[in-house]
Design a protein around this nucleic acid. Structure first.
Lengths: 229, 229
DNA sequence: TCTCGTATGATTGTATACAATTATACGAGA
DNA sequence: TCTCGTATAATTGTATACAATCATACGAGA
């Protein structure tokens, strides 16, 4: 539980605390703040023109998000993510994405099914044109559709969490041409299994899809830079 | 889940904020605060003799923990957990406990293996004596040993999260005699599979163990009371 | 009686002030 | 030169004060 994947997202983007939270989060994911860098309350507060109070509250949330670690009476430090952490998350995700595909097969709506088909159609188009930006966007969206279609807010939240978490590492993974094509083909097969109502197949394909994505990352050396310890 | 399951636990139990956090959390899990009850900052602060500041920070964390929901400018409300949520979590846990058993098979240390054997031995003893309290304790510990033995802090954290989360529902589940006996037998089989180095078997047994635990809960009607929506 | 607007109170959001803790610098003594 | 203790500065922890928002009560008008 700690929370668990049930935790709420920071929805009030318009409160100072929400804005601070999102800004720091983004800066960490973007790599502006390096691993083990110390975040000072006053500095961030001054930068955004707010007092320490909303900054501190944002820190507490970021700690539970796993992005920073707060040492009592000392400070807040950006947490690292090891290569093994990434591997573990992908293995966990693999199982849960499989479960998600299974539940999506049982619960997907007509509209969601259509959006998924459209997504794949568009992906194949942009792949043929070499549009990396749109490809990444569509890839994310494909998984989101599946998360929504599985009809479980617990599972959806867990998967979104994992997805967010590995974003730090993943960034430009999809930009290789060969992986893009393979990924599209895998998406299509998953979609077809869902459409046919073949839950076993959908689960198995989604399983494999995650593992393939991970192995591609390893092969192209996208992980090592983030190693620590 | 926010993060993800990677988020930190609240470790500084000795800060006011940490104490407030743990107290509120416990009160929610214990059922002192009912679902949808509104938590007021001043009231809780006065009760514990602290100001609003540490209470507010604790609230932010509890929100990400999924125990409360904060509506901007309105208040903090205890979140409910539906029967479907519990079911979903158990299905997710089933998969991840299986993975955990697999990794434990590959990574367990000699000391951990011995503690696990001792745990089972003690469990069977207390079962024969009908000591419900110790049984529950040992059951929790069995899973913790496996979490530690899997040698993955990501997976360990995720599983501890889920475990904590369903504690609200589970409470006295194990107290039925028949389930206690069956649970012990399942633990023993998992342990033996790990000891023999049979990862596939360990995974499969741990999978099934979770599902059995869930089905037992349903059969005995431990869930319905927590339903909402 | 019902509806709606206003006023009042309650509660949260943020800023600031002060206390406690930790880090750093510097100098005395060996 | 090195070590260690003290003083000072910097930073976090908590309390309080004020601002903004929301809920409630009440009364005027229809």
């Amino acid at each position: 539980m700690s929370s668990y994947d049930v935790k709420k997202e920071v929805t009030d983007k318009y409160s100072l605390r929400g804005r601070v939270f999102n800004k720091i989060r983004e800066d960490i994911l973007n790599g502006r703040y390096k691993v083990k860098e110390e975040l000072r309350e006053v500095a961030i507060g001054e930068e955004m023109g707010v007092s320490r109070t909303p900054v501190r509250e944002a820190f507490r949330q970021l700690e539970l998000e796993g992005l920073i670690q707060i040492v009592p009476n000392k400070g807040a430090y950006v947490t690292g993510i090891t290569a093994k952490d990434v591997r573990d998350i992908y293995m966990m995700r693999s199982l849960l994405e499989g479960l998600c595909a299974r539940w999506a097969t049982e619960n997907i709506s007509k509209e969601q099914m259509e959006e998924m088909e459209e997504n794949i159609f568009l992906s194949e188009f942009h792949a043929s044109k070499g549009h990396a930006e749109q490809m990444a966007e569509l890839d994310n969206r494909f998984h989101e559709i599946m998360y929504e279609a599985c009809n479980s807010k617990m599972l959806e939240h867990a998967l979104k969490d994992y997805h967010q978490y590995v974003l730090r590492v993943r960034k430009k993974t999809l930009s290789t041409q060969t992986r893009s094509t393979a990924s599209n083909a895998e998406h299509r097969k998953i979609m077809e299994a869902i459409k046919e109502g073949n839950a076993d197949m959908a689960e198995q394909l989604a399983n494999r899809h995650m593992i393939n994505a991970y192995e591609n990352m390893v092969k192209n050396g996208f992980i090592e830079h983030y190693e620590e310890e």
